[in-house]
Amino acid sequence: MKPFFTPLRPPGAVAEQEFLRRCIRCGQCVHACPWQAVRLAGGWGKTRNTPVIVPRHTPCWLCMKCPPACPSGALDASVTSMEKANMGRAIMIKDQCLNYKGGTMCWTCYDRCPLRGKAIILEGGILPTITDACVGCGVCEYVCPEKAITTVPEKR
């Protein structure tokens, strides 16, 4: 169950424990994000003022501007390609998806995926299926009209 309790980190984040040690809570990734998708976690715990992404509010469009902005190496600055963002993984809830339920042809997630044709493929030309290429940016969760997709942070 642990993955469900670690927040979704910006692209290029190192493993969660090391991330908490390295992140100095400066907010430069938040300023670097042109979509305001990276936000600061609240509360009083270890994760206070660390960057998180809440896909259902604003997903990450994988512009890859935050890893070079990080001064402390909590986001690996060498990660510059969308395929290596490694934030997490999207999970399809099939009994909510219109295509799986039948009757409506909705390919919104397939169309809007930043890694179009790689992370989500159409099985049999109809059923959207998430592959191992998915990096967990959360755009599909954001655009899905039925909220049939959930993004799970990378297990670290």
Binding site: L20, R21, R22, I24, P71, S72, G73
Partner: peptide, 12 residues
């Protein structure tokens, strides 16, 4: 802050 970040490994 930099000293504390150093505890997590070599910083840039």
């Amino acid at each position: 802050s930099a000293m504390q970040a150093l505890l997590g490994g070599l910083v840039p």
